[in-house]
Design a protein around this nucleic acid. Sequence first.
RNA 1: GGUUGCGUAGCUCAAUUGGAUAGAGCAUCUCACUACGGAUGAGAAGGUUUGGGGUUCGAAUCCCUACGCGAUCACCA
Length: 594
Amino acid sequence: MLLVQNQLIEAIKNGLSSLFEIQANDLVLQETKKEFEGTYTFVVFPYTKQAGLSPAAIAEKLGQFVLENHKGVKKFQVVQGFLNFSFTDEIWVNALLKIIESSQTFTLDNKGEKVLIEYSSPNTNKPLHLGHLRNNFLGYSVAKILEAAGYDVIKTNLVNDRGIHICKSMLAYQLQGQGETPETSGLKGDHLVGKYYVAFDILYKAEIETLVKQGLDPEKAKKEAPILLKAQDMLLAWENGDPEVMKLWETMNAWVFAGFEKSYAQMGVSFDKIYRESNTYLLGKKLVEEGLKEGIFYQKEDQSVWINLEEEGLDEKLVLRKDGTSVYITQDMGTAQLKFEDFGAKKSIYVVGNEQDYHFEVLFNILKKLNKPYSLGNYHLSYGMVDLPTGKMKSREGTVVDADDLMAEMVQTAKERTMELGKTDGFTEDASNELYQQLGMGALKYFLLKVDPKKRMMFNPEESIDFQGNTGPFIQYTHARICSITRKATELGIELIQANTKGFELNTTEIDLIYILGLYKSKIEEAAETFSPSLIAMYTYDLAKQFNKLYNELSILKEEDENKRNIRLTLADLTGKTIQHAFSLLGIVSPNKM
RNA sequence: GGUUGCGUAGCUCAAUUGGAUAGAGCAUCUCACUACGGAUGAGAAGGUUUGGGGUUCGAAUCCCUACGCGAUCACCA
């Protein structure tokens, strides 16, 4: 389609220049609105002054010129200042053949450029929740899209396995754990540890209350609660390598990692390399020391280390505490350095929620000041929070939608829905269970990915995620239906169209479908540039919808005209393959039967 | 309070980056079928794009302003 589009642009340019002596460089064609006839629309309003004619008159003359000078244009229509063009059927069939040829491999040419993407980034003090699901699905999908767009992608995960919050779970476990393990409790490791994170908060709040009752200022009470002080001591002990603390930390972390591994497997996401902050924070400290020598950082009287970013429009920022322990940003500096040493990629994408916009602005500015070779290609893919009707999720207060629970629920819903419809007749038990997985996870992933990543989105746990309309299962269904058609076609010995492009007559439904199919590769490109899986999701929906429309209006295998039958089968086949590929970019499986 | 993002149908989301009568799904109502898979298709209804001003041939989109909702401004991560 691109070729046709460019030819049309050229023809319009020539028309403008020879009719009105207007030299226009960047002409943009728009898609013609559904209610009008045509494929592309050229807006002539901007040229009325230069041409000295009414918009309609310009459009009329220009349309006539293009019709005479461009063989592929079948007709044009003028509506006010909008000039709409339609192409001949032959152009469309040729376009279809080109699309098929280029869809042999859907991926774009290799760009010879490495890109790092970091996503997931869980804390090892609690299980994953709904927000993490959006993060993981997004990160995985963006990685897939970048790969398809021709980049060499390295997926990384930075696990936040150290810090005061980890000590909180540990401390509560020490106090109340009584030797409980995942085995004895029957709880998944991350859930067990999360239980003690909540327990800490309860103890902490109780202590604050007591202190306040004793007449202490609430703000002061928050800082001086004994259990909090103990947690701080524990962090220091950890950084000093205290054997007992280290042992507990290792044990509890191992539980959490085992739990996460299961969750990741269920999500269908993976990583090329997993980093742990416990391994990178020392490197961060080293970078701080270097920067201190070079005068990029400075030390205050209490020994804490800072950077001044006021010139960049930001504040002073702490990079090392007065007791010498590292903070969040110290670790991120170390990780950035380590990632560069490991992979040498100059482009790096961080998939992290928009609550950390400020943090990443600071981090990227620090890296620039340090003049690191990887300091210019950083991008914070800042996605919006998932809101519940009750407001924001808070782990400590238990107002979270747990990731494992939600995924299990989705699979269960898929099962019920499928059994209601009696769709698993002839399936083995294993096959049915696999199908429920694919459908349930497809619904969930599509639900979270179809929305523009930058935007906040709403999730209502009371209303289950749909399986009809603009949903994953709707598109999966379309794919399965197409598979059924192509299976039958093979049995009947019906063939796809070959190179012969003469003598085909097309309906608008077919033309519209060819048009959409032709957009796919440019959608991949666009999604890669904007890091937006939602573009792929919306595209796939449009494609499936257009195919279903055709399916309802026209016969495919029962069509008696051989040319028509074969071209429709070709369209079905290509649609199925495109859906399958597009969904793979979203991390969604397209079953052949459902 | 400073910084920053957002506000579109009852609900959840779109809108080709300034273009035509603002589009989909869900929910509501009507219709199509002995079908190549109905987890479908066609249609109705639903909107002063938060309010008010401005910029121009043309504004959901850009500017100003008021209101509303988030995020952030930690020696938490």
